[in-house]
């Protein structure tokens, strides 16, 4: 959404001050800026610049904050990648159907299973998808559950719904599924 242009009483548009307010090399009016003379003497521009620079300092503070990597993320990512990569060794899932056999490459099966598990889990209340790992012999779906949810109920629902989705697509070739709760999230909306 575009906001209407705000114009100061001196006739300058606020947007013309944005680049100046967000420069990090000086707090004053650099000699090379357009309208330097006006900017130095105009009280409206000066006042607006102070406000914009104060807001921009909050952006700088946010940018300087360290972002903590969630515990276990590298391990979960490696498990996910290895599951897909492992499929490049040539194994196939097989499902016998009337009239023939369907073969699904392990890498394709893992990608498909990951997307299906994510879509199913994220459609359930109080639980978030974290990762899917494993191979043709068995899958592990990891989830995070909001505090206050009944764990047994949630994991049963996840196993049932994800398992049903896999079976509807892969038939008898759908691998067995384990559900792991590896994080508890604060209740939604709680501060």
């Amino acid at each position: 959404m575009r906001h209407p242009e705000r114009v100061l009483p001196c006739g300058r548009a606020v947007s013309s001050l944005v680049d100046l307010a967000t420069r990090d090399d000086t707090a004053g009016i650099p000699a090379d800026s357009r309208d330097a003379e006006h900017l130095r003497s105009c009280p409206y521009c000066q006042e607006e610049l102070v406000v914009l620079r104060r807001r921009w300092s909050a952006v700088r503070s946010a940018a300087n904050r360290r972002v903590r990597t969630p515990p276990g993320l590298v391990g979960r990512t490696l498990s996910t990648v290895r599951a897909v990569r492992g499929g490049l060794t040539g194994r196939h899932a097989e499902a016998t159907q009337p009239g023939g056999v369907v073969r699904i490459a392990e890498s394709a099966m893992m990608l498909l299973a990951r997307r299906m598990a994510r879509d199913v889990v994220d459609g359930l209340a109080g639980v978030r998808f974290r990762s899917l790992s494993g191979d043709l012999d068995g899958l592990q779906v990891r989830v995070a559950v909001h505090y206050g949810m009944a764990l047994a109920e949630v994991t049963t629902r996840v196993r049932h719904d994800v398992g049903a989705a896999l079976e509807s697509t892969l038939g008898a070739a759908a691998p067995p599924l384990d559900v792991l709760v590896d994080d508890v999230l604060a209740p939604r909306g709680h501060r």
Partner: peptide
């Protein structure tokens, strides 16, 4: 959670 998922998809 979405960021984690995006990272795994990215890799």
């Amino acid at each position: 959670a979405d960021a984690e998922d995006a990272v795994q998809d990215a890799w």
